[in-house]
Computed example of a mutant assay.
Amino acid sequence: MGGQRGGACIISRAVAEAIKLKAREIEAETTIEFLERLRALGEEVIALEPSMASVRNAVETILSRVKKAEAATPEECIKLVSEAADELIERSRNAVEKISEYGSGLIIDGDTILTHSCSHTVLKVLERAHEEGKKFRVIVTESRPLLEGRETASELLSKSIPVTLIVDAAICTVMRDVDKVMIGADAILADGSIVNKVGSLPIALAAYASNVPLIVVVESLKF
Rank of each mutant, 00 (worst) to 15 (best):
Lys124Trp: 06
Glu148Asn: 11
Arg137Ser: 08
Glu151Ile: 15
Leu146Arg: 15
Ile161Arg: 04
Ser154His: 07
Cys118Arg: 15
Thr173Val: 09
Gly184Ser: 04
Phe136Glu: 04
Leu147Trp: 13
Glu132Arg: 10
Glu151Leu: 15
Glu131Ser: 09
Glu155Asp: 14
Ala169Met: 11
Glu142Val: 09
Lys135Phe: 11
Pro162Arg: 02
Arg128Val: 04
Gly184Leu: 03
Ser117Cys: 15
Glu132Leu: 14
Asp168Ile: 09
Lys135Ile: 13
His116Arg: 02
Lys159Asn: 03
Ser160Cys: 05
Asp168Lys: 07
Val181Ile: 06
Gly184Ala: 05
Ile183Leu: 13
Glu131Trp: 01
Ala153Gly: 07
Thr164Asn: 09
Glu151Gln: 13
Pro162Leu: 02
Ile139Gly: 09
Asp179Tyr: 01
Val181Trp: 01
Thr164Lys: 15
Leu126Arg: 01
Glu148Tyr: 05
Asp177Arg: 12
Glu151Asp: 13
Thr173Gln: 12
Thr121Trp: 04
Arg128His: 13
Gly133Ala: 01
Thr173Glu: 14
Leu165Val: 09
Ala129Tyr: 00
His120Leu: 15
Ile166Tyr: 00
Pro145His: 08
Glu131Pro: 00
Ile161Lys: 00
Thr121Glu: 11
Pro145Lys: 07
Lys159Asp: 04
Leu165Asp: 06
Ile171Ser: 03
Ser154Trp: 04
Asp168Gly: 08
Glu131Cys: 00
Arg176Pro: 02
Lys159Trp: 07
Ser119Val: 07
Leu157Arg: 14
Leu147Ile: 12
Thr173Arg: 12
Glu127Gln: 09
Asp168Thr: 03
Leu146Ile: 13
Ser143Arg: 10
Arg144Pro: 06
Ala129Trp: 00
Val167Tyr: 06
Phe136Arg: 11
Thr164Phe: 04
Leu156Pro: 04
Leu126Pro: 01
Val125Gln: 03
Ser119Ile: 03
Leu156Glu: 05
Ser160Phe: 06
Lys135Tyr: 12
Val163Cys: 13
Asp168Gln: 10
Thr115Gly: 07
Ile161His: 02
Ser119Asn: 10
Glu151Ser: 14
Arg150Tyr: 10
Arg128Glu: 15
Val163Leu: 05
Ala153Lys: 08
Arg176Gly: 10
Ala153Met: 08
Met182Cys: 08
Glu148Lys: 06
Gly184His: 02
Ile183His: 10
His130Pro: 03
Asp177Asn: 13
Thr164Ile: 13
Ile166Asp: 04
Arg137Phe: 00
Arg144Ala: 12
Ser160Ile: 02
Gly133Lys: 00
Leu146Gly: 03
Val167Ser: 12
Asp177Ser: 14
Ala169Leu: 10
Thr115Glu: 02
Met175Tyr: 01
Thr115Trp: 01
Arg150Met: 13
Arg144His: 11
Thr115Ser: 08
Glu127Asp: 12
Val138Phe: 00
Lys134Phe: 02
Met182Tyr: 02
Leu165Phe: 09
Arg128Met: 14
Leu156Ser: 05
Ser160Gly: 02
Asp168His: 08
Ile183Ala: 07
